[in-house]
Design a protein around this nucleic acid. Sequence first.
DNA 1: CGATGAGTTCAACGCTAGATGAATTACTTC
DNA 2: GAAGTAATTCATCTAGCGTTGAACTCATCG
Lengths: 196, 196
Amino acid sequence: MKRSGRRPGNQDTRTSILEVARRTFAEKGFDKASIRAIAGDAGVDPALVHHYFGTKEKLFLEVMNAPINPGELIPQALAGPREEAGIRLIRMALSVWDSPAGTAALAMFRSALSNEWTARLLREFVVTQILRRAVRELIVDPEEAPLRSALVATQIAGLMVVRYVLRLEPVASADPELLATMIGPNIQRFLDEPLD
Amino acid sequence: MKRSGRRPGNQDTRTSILEVARRTFAEKGFDKASIRAIAGDAGVDPALVHHYFGTKEKLFLEVMNAPINPGELIPQALAGPREEAGIRLIRMALSVWDSPAGTAALAMFRSALSNEWTARLLREFVVTQILRRAVRELIVDPEEAPLRSALVATQIAGLMVVRYVLRLEPVASADPELLATMIGPNIQRFLDEPLD
DNA sequence: CGATGAGTTCAACGCTAGATGAATTACTTC
DNA sequence: GAAGTAATTCATCTAGCGTTGAACTCATCG
């Protein structure tokens, strides 16, 4: 059936491999997303993936590259009354992850849960790209910033785990706005309440 | 050096395999904990593991069997003033996971994050063994119980992820009592506050 | 038309994994 | 002490992984 050699026509195979890879990394995480499976889903030989991206890790980095730039989101989440920042954070997080663009973020998170290399990538990214930017505007005492932001991280990570990884109902399919009003105030408390 | 055949003396190899397995599953999760590595750490041939436990999945079930029985813990966590239940929950959770007995729970959780089969096991276990017992005593309106308990689960799961899996400081090495007083009230809010 | 190069597949290597069946050694019982 | 059974290892099978180098086919440009 499928002959060897170049295919007729002009198709951007490289991009379609990237799309399949993003989806697959998000569904299975770094380790279980095999290059062979990605190639198969893209209708392509595994060797072609290496031809374009070199190694599996470079492919992962390429997948992460494009869609994650918190440069726009963070200010957007911060704009608004200070005492509703918690709600806005949850609302924005959910809208990002539920969107197609959030697939990369989910891939990153899922991978970080079981792979040391991607876990380091995520820590690095979260700390330098998100926490440092967001937290300095929200937390008054800079000395308390690391603890407070890590506490915020527990609630947000837990929401991701329950909604997207474990898929525990009714949170898995709950309305984002309901979740925002329920969880937001708890985020707010991590930001504001005194650390006994 | 190491000859074939039965070893001299009376040693309970089966049990020591189980201990190594529990530790290994907790550290690496189901998928990355290889039978070969477990056997190696236990100073034993991989085939012996199969001889005792049949398959990797049966070994995992055996590991889970003994130490997880919430029959005693739950009432203990519930005993006390109603309005401090949140703090007691966090305090107890941390004391369980930090203890050697909590290794199995950690193994279960870690595995569930990347393996579908263990994720189903965990959902089943959490829902039938923990939530149903604990929540009926804490949540007034039974209609709200599923959502409220799932919200509690987000905060607790997030704490596990940040403290034990991602090991994000300062939560990773924070004093349990501090975490309890910081996080407990948020749990309390999930239990009590009206669901807007 | 012919050459060059990019796109693509083929076949294979080296590795790790879970699993299996036969062979080897020790303990137990009569 | 011989028979039988339990504990243990050995060698091996099958399957999947990431990766590599060579071979093949098409598009493009002179």
